[in-house]
């Protein structure tokens, strides 16, 4: 993983990007209704998968746009890249 293909700018050096952690964690629709356990789940608990993981990345030193990536964390191989709001590819 030295090159990352930004969906807006194309192939760029990994140094230009910032990892933003696990993707598709939904923000609570009714924050006032949430129990402490549910807050902990939303804020802190992570899948931290060894294998194929869905995550968010930001082209911080480029177009500064966010996008999603499917990556194998056991060998850093990038499987797919898709824009925010798009449906994740089935893996």
């Amino acid at each position: 993983m030295f090159l990352i293909t930004c969906p807006y700018c194309g192939e760029r050096d990994q140094q230009e990007f910032k990892a933003g952690g696990e993707a598709h964690i939904e923000r609570p629709k009714q924050p006032t209704e949430l129990s402490d356990d549910e807050w902990a789940e939303y804020l802190f608990m992570r899948k931290n998968i060894k294998g194929v993981q869905f995550e968010r990345w930001n082209h911080a030193h480029g177009c500064r746009k966010w996008f999603n990536m499917v990556r194998d964390t056991s060998n850093d191989e990038i499987k797919a890249i898709y824009k925010m709001g798009e449906k994740p590819p089935s893996q």
Binding site: F2, Q14, Q53, R71, T73
Partner: peptide, 14 residues
Amino acid sequence: TDDYVSYTQKGSHQ
């Protein structure tokens, strides 16, 4: 540390 999750025991050059 790198800022992304990885189990590769390598890490980025930068």
